[in-house]
Nucleic acid binder design. Structure first.
Length: 868
RNA sequence: GCCGAAGUGGUGGAAUUGGUAGACACGCCAGACUUAGGAUCUGGUGCAGCGAUGCGUGGAGGUUCAAGUCCUCUCUUCGGCACCA
């Protein structure tokens, strides 16, 4: 029995079979329950990596399982094809982004097919095709019509040297990635989606997504960042004008001693004009405007500010408060103005100390802390407490005071309860070439005019080439840019030459899959009604916020436009972990590939083949080309084939955890597959093979056969539950391994028909249970075992409850909670019998050692604990 | 700083409602079969000890007949957000 399983012959044959027989084509069938499984579609970078393999393997197993369970499954695949890497590659390789992208798509498609994934390739889409982005432009126009999108001036990263806009990813340490010159901020008119209109709804529904990992909903909630507080008006001294602030702590209002405005706040200029501070303020505002705005840069700046020369009045106690402009006040949050309460906010406290501003304590802990009485506090007191120095509210609990004070202000028309969000509107304009053109026209007379629906799509010209610095050619392409105004017909109109953020395409692709060739609408409502929402979505946790939030937002947009009747796109979400591997670093060459290292004479250390230095084997981190710790799936495929690659990805770790790559582990999976292979061949080689046991349990008299049969049903139960409940394929696989081990442990050469029959049943079970995981291998064995193809259409095995129990059970005996002995006993024995046997045990007696027995605890059919 | 997750053998990882800690696999050790073994099969493998036994789930307490699991405190690592008023 030396025959080895050879994946290369088997796998391509079955892949052809599946494709030819269209086994994975999805058709609407209202008589059947549907199941929509989706994995995050890839960016066509050229090659799939282990992260893709893992992601798509997980999905494929579930699809094949659900199909065997009788569900009508849809499992589509496509390409997130717009974006910057295509532009970079085009410049580096002197090609066109489109050519590069389409080449990559075709080679990646081949790779995915090589892995045996069960996609319905007839539904394939690529977001860079006009048939796709046409509907994105259509939706944009609908949103424009309904005021869900607007234009405003906003900052972009600008490289003066290259005369081009840079995406955030193109800014490296404040410098242009291509030329190394400093990046500036430039104000441009840009389009925004009003995602903030749905902030509350997106937030509320975070708690109505039981199928999502809590980690992700928590991250989304934090991102949306709702805070409840009050809006309070402070009158400007000498004017009839007010400054509005947002605060979450209206209870500290009596302690507000100064005011801070964001440098961009519209009042900053008018307040300081004509005062002695005017110049200082202007200098400060200019300085802040020049500063880089990335979050990295923000950390570096100290809190600073400048007095505007103006004062405002605290509405509750009439205190004169100096108005500052300060860099920590953000125009984007709240109202862009902060009432500063240095006694109870650490940031305000630091600022007050720096500029010698007054600190007024208004809250004290219930057990008085002397520190808060003195004028020399060392830090702000931010805990709850009792109000002091707060007029009629003195003595009140601060939580209660929040509402009371706000209520009072509201009565006077000086304030109200309000909500503020951290989430900002989604800026979608990109001054890049390789993206969906924004379908509007700018007319000197009519202003912004939407492209008429009949003229869609606005096709991205694919005969244009990127400019040398990577800039978009669109603004200089007259035949694209110059057009006539659809409204007034004048010929001075210009197309918008910006394209949309590529996150827009990925926000609705899953709905397009329902009717991918529909050319009369964004989607066919009937198909969407049947297939949507996605039942199970699988992808990397790196998309926990943006992509998943945008997709949820887009479904709300479609819902608001009465195009769909649901709001949440993904019922269940699985965020799989990363694929990791250790890194190797040479002191001279930096990161090196494992093949450039060799073991030194002492067999313990690794040295660099090039220079002989000792190699440092570093931490296990995510596979990355630059860290040289990648495994190329192609190499695995040619060495082990698809099934074993898939098996390892599933066996090494549960899907939500990071997976550490281990070459020996793959080898182990290869051994397991061969072990099953040999076992199956042995059983089928029998001249008089057993028929899979389907008879009465009572007919299984032989102990070995009975136990093995029970084990098989326990395995079915375990595997089914592991897949159904948690996608824990690692434990499912180990359960099958146990069953295989049990079969090997039995008498394989026995002539006993009963045992042979049970063995045949076990073998069939093993192959069926493994079939979603190693589909080619399973098909091959299934056929060899005398079945008609395809195993894809076989029903998933069901376990027999009555077969799960065995006649004998194992009982453990503890003395004072410590394990001292075990024995087996008939399953129907009562507690008394257990007690008796436990006490009679020699080892148990030794530990009781004449001490009086205080108590005996019996856990039914499981355990006896004797307390002495 | 805030929010979240996780700490179990040499390694990846298992452990229903609290009830045999370490399933399964890798690695290692031994044996069998072999011209050979880096194939295969069998057995062993948490640590200490010849042994009986003792100790063991990041650490310290606690609840319980019984704790990886529950409670309190604490340490470490990873992830996310971060001048958010």
């Amino acid at each position: 029995m030396d025959e080895h399983y050879s994946p290369e012959e088997v796998e391509s044959r079955w892949q052809e079979y599946w494709e030819k027989n269209k086994l994975f084509r999805a058709d609407e069938d209202s008589s059947k329950e549907k199941y929509y499984l989706l994995e995050m579609f890839p960016y066509p970078s050229g090659k799939i990596h282990m992260g893709h393999v893992r992601n798509y393997t997980i999905g494929d197993v579930v699809v094949r399982y659900k199909k065997m369970k009788g569900l009508n499954v849809i499992h589509p695949m496509g390409w997130d094809a717009f974006g910057m890497p295509a532009e970079n590659a085009a410049i580096d390789n002197n090609t066109h982004p489109a050519a590069w992208t389409y080449d990559n798509i075709s080679s990646m498609r081949t790779q995915l097919k090589r892995l045996g994934f069960s996609y319905d390739w007839e539904r394939e889409i690529a977001t860079c095709r006009p048939e796709y982005y046409c509907w994105e432009q259509w939706l944009f126009l609908k949103m424009l019509e309904k005021d869900m999108v607007y234009r405003k001036e906003s900052y972009v990263n600008w490289c003066e040297h290259c005369k081009t806009v840079l995406a955030n990813e193109q800014v490296e340490a404040d410098m242009c990635w291509r030329c190394g010159e400093p990046v500036q901020q430039k104000k441009l008119w840009q389009w925004f989606f009003k995602i903030t209109d749905f902030a509350e709804d997106l937030l509320v529904y975070c708690d109505k997504l039981p199928g999502w990992p809590e980690k992700v909903t928590v991250m989304q909630k934090n991102w949306i960042g709702k805070s409840i507080g009050s809006e309070i008006k402070f009158r400007i001294e000498g004017q009839d004008n007010y400054i509005k602030v947002f605060t979450t702590r209206p209870d500290t209002l009596f302690g507000a001693t100064f005011m801070c405005l964001a440098p961009e706040h519209p009042l900053v200029d008018s307040l300081s004009r004509g005062t002695s501070q005017a110049e200082a303020v202007k200098a400060f505002v200019d300085k802040i405007a020049d500063q880089e705005r990335s979050t990295d840069a923000l950390e570096k700046y100290e809190k600073e500010g400048v007095f505007t020369g103006a004062w405002c009045i605290n509405p509750v106690n009439g205190r004169r408060m100096p108005i500052y402009t300060a860099n920590f006040a953000l125009m984007e949050y709240g109202t862009g103005a902060v009432m500063s309460v240095p006694a109870h906010d650490q940031r305000d406290f630091d600022f007050a100390q720096k500029y010698g501003l007054e600190i007024q304590i208004v809250i004290e802990p219930e057990t008085k802390n002397p520190d808060t009485h003195t004028g020399s506090m060392s830090q702000a007191y931010t805990e709850p407490g009792i109000l002091v120095n707060s007029g009629e509210y003195t003595g009140m609990d601060n939580i209660e005071a929040m509402d009371k004070i706000t209520q009072r202000l509201q009565e006077k028309g000086l304030g109200k309860k309000t909500v503020s969000f951290r989430l900002r509107d989604w800026g979608i304009s990109r001054q890049r070439y390789w993206g969906t053109p924004i379908p509007v026209i700018h007319c000197p007379d009519c202003g912004v005019v939407p492209v008429p629906e009949s003229e869609l799509p606005v096709v991205l010209p694919e005969d244009a080439n990127l400019l040398e610095n990577g800039a978009s050619p669109l603004p200089s392409l007259d035949y694209f840019k110059k057009t006539t105004c659809p409204k007034c017909g004048c010929s001075d109109a210009k197309r918008d030459t910006d394209t949309m953020d590529t996150f827009v395409e990925s926000s609705w692709y899953f709905i397009r899959y329902c009717s991918p060739r529909c050319d009369t609408a964004m989607f066919d409502p009937k198909a969407v009604k049947y297939w949507m929402p996605v039942d199970q979505y699988i992808g990397g946790v790196e998309h926990a916020i943006l992509h998943l939030l945008y997709s949820r937002y887009f479904m709300r947009v479609l819902n608001h436009l009465n195009l769909i009747d649901f709001k949440e796109p993904f019922t269940r979400l699985l965020t799989q972990g990363m694929v990791c591997k250790e890194t190797m670093t040479c002191p001279k060459h930096g990161y090196i590939f494992p093949e450039d290292a060799q073991t030194a004479g002492d067999n313990n250390t690794l040295t660099c083949k090039k220079c002989g230095s000792t190699i440092d084997v570093g931490r296990v981190i995510k596979m990355s080309k630059s860290k040289k710790n990648v495994i190329d799936p192609n190499i695995l495929l040619s060495k082990y084939g698809a099934d074993i690659t898939r098996l390892f990805c599933l066996f090494a770790a549960p899907p939500e955890k990071d997976l550490e790559w281990n070459d020996d582990g793959v080898e182990g999976c290869y051994r397991f597959i061969n072990r099953v292979w040999r076992l199956a061949l042995k059983l089928t080689a029998d001249e008089n093979p057993g028929k899979p046991f389907r008879g009465e349990l009572s007919k299984l008299k032989d102990d070995g056969a009975g136990k093995l049969y029970a084990k098989a049903h326990q395995t079915i139960k375990k595997v089914t539950e592991d897949i159904e409940n948690s996608f824990h394929f690692n434990t499912a696989i180990s359960a099958v391994m146990e069953l295989v081990n049990a079969m090997y442990a039995g008498d394989l050469d026995s002539d006993d028909t009963e045992l042979k029959s049970v063995a045949a049943f076990c073998m069939e079970t093993v192959v069926l249970l493994l079939s979603p995981i190693v589909p080619h291998f399973a098909e091959e064995l299934w056929e060899k075992m005398g079945h008609e193809p395809s195993i894809v259409d076989e029903p998933w095995p069901e376990y027999r409850k009555d077969a799960l129990v065995t006649d004998e059970i194992l009982v453990v005996v503890q003395v004072n909670g410590k394990l001292r002995s075990k024995f087996t006993i008939a399953a129907d024995s009562d507690d008394e019998a257990l007690k008796e046997l436990a006490l009679a045990d020699e080892a148990v007696q030794r530990h009781i050692n004449d001490k009086p027995v205080k108590k005996i605890i019996v856990v039914k059919k499981k355990l006896v604990n004797i307390v002495v």
